[in-house]
Design a binder for these strands. Structure first.
Lengths: 267, 267
DNA sequence: CAGTGGTCTAGACCACACT
DNA sequence: GTGTGGTCTAGACCACTGC
């Protein structure tokens, strides 16, 4: 009961809770009920109570569980759907977003053929160049929220479209959550890498930030991408986050942009 | 009255209107009430019934005008706010979004100093290189929805941060809506260019698409940006749209990315 | 048909800004 | 205090899916 002052597990905290007497924060800390419900749903997602691709309980069911009205649950789910953590399907239910069955194969890849027609070039060919265990440099550690020297996994691969090498990626993953990841498992899996992360390691990438620059490749990069020296490339540095805003991947891609471009929409 | 079958001005069409008998479209054309309200509000924005920076009528007032409940108006405004066409301010009202007073000075510019601290480098210095009238090439015309040979305005300028030339921009604008724009007016105006468009020409940019590539500059570009040849640059091609999704600007920027980067967030 | 999300309403009350 | 947007509820009905 949202108006009752005795919070328990699975029950939203009453908004009338007093802020700590000796607190230094100035915010009065008013949290709408639906935000608290959103937090509870997020918790269930974090704890994998509902797995990617599965349906979560109906709005009425959740309203009963949390002792709030359907409209309040609805507003919580609305926000989670706007953040692409949940997917609503009228008449069927609300589902946990997934990188696997998703029609949009590469959710975080903004590179497009200049023709604009994604289907024209067919699926990407993937070639794993390297996959090795090593210790995090200071820079890698900082990006992944680890300590320098912590074990990390490094993957290098090339993506080709219509037999033309187009993307060279270096990927760094924290060693703990991704223990057991090998070049073989990567090569054998057909589908987005993030789908493999979800299914095999229970790691869901939910959000990412990218920093984009232009640069000239070195000799090794030229060779792997089969391009001339002095071909300018896009450098796309991505940090991908799971629930809790915890960084779980650092990825640095080099994109050849003579027949493709990075597409972005601004609002 | 939403249930009445006699639509008039400022009254939403009843959803029960039958689709044209000989129509080839398969969609049953059900439009929720709040979508119709959204359309009416959008119309008022297009017609400048409320101008950028001004408050629109309160939710209750609009509910009265359109003969629907406050909740329905609210949902319409929610979507317009999500699209950054309106800005809600609790306790004050709902305002038409503007490029002028907006705290975020450059709404569409995603270039950030590597430090991440935008305020560290102060305001950009702007230098208008050129501003001339000419006839649209086929490419320009297509991007702006004009016909080849139609009059267009071309502006070239350089933006510097902390005295370092960083962005070289070529801008093409349709001649009609921007009649009377001169290098002087551009130079004399202190503030975002899109704010000038709003105030002086009544053109509001609402949305944009960008295509990003890497390239090497030519001699002239090197000179204007004061960089060495063989410095790779970001090429950012932007089409900006006003209400109705009508393209109103083509802009091609060259970004120097040794101390700055293009920042993007993915969801 | 039942179950799900989606829309719409009417009313009560809360948080915030201004005066 | 008054007026604004923001939250929450309860109930009715609609649209879509699948049995």
């Amino acid at each position: 009961m949202p108006q009752m002052p005795a919070p328990s597990n699975d029950t939203p905290i009453d908004a009338a809770d007093l802020s700590d007497s000796a607190s230094t924060q100035a915010t009065p800390a008013f949290r709408p009920l639906y935000q608290q419900i959103k937090g509870l749903i997020l918790n269930s997602l974090r704890l994998s109570e509902w797995k990617p691709g599965e349906a979560i309980p109906s709005e009425m069911e959740l309203a009963g569980r949390y002792r709030v009205s359907q409209g309040t649950v609805r507003k919580a789910i609305d926000e989670l759907a706007a953040e692409n953590l949940l997917v609503r399907r009228q008449g069927k239910g609300t589902f946990v977003a997934t990188h696997a069955e998703q029609h949009v194969q590469y959710r975080f890849l903004k590179l497009m053929p200049d023709s604009g027609d994604l289907s024209s070039e067919g699926p990407a060919q993937r070639l794993i160049i390297d996959c090795k265990r090593l210790r995090a440099s200071a820079e890698i550690a900082r990006a992944l929220g680890l300590r320098t020297g912590d074990p990390v996994l490094q993957v290098r691969r090339v993506l080709s479209f219509a037999d033309k090498p187009t993307i060279l990626e270096d990927i760094w993953l924290p060693g703990g959550p991704f223990k057991g990841l090998t070049a073989e498992r990567l090569s054998n899996y057909s589908g987005p890498m993030y789908a493999l992360f979800e299914i095999e390691f229970g790691v869901q990438m939910v959000r990412a930030e990218e920093k984009i620059r232009a640069l000239l490749p070195d000799a090794e990069q030229c060779q792997l991408l089969k391009i001339e020296p002095n071909t300018p490339l896009l450098s796309v540095e991505r940090i991908a986050y799971t629930y809790n805003n915890a960084p779980m991947e650092l990825r640095r891609g080099l994109y050849v942009t003579d027949t493709h471009h990075y597409r972005n929409e601004l609002n």
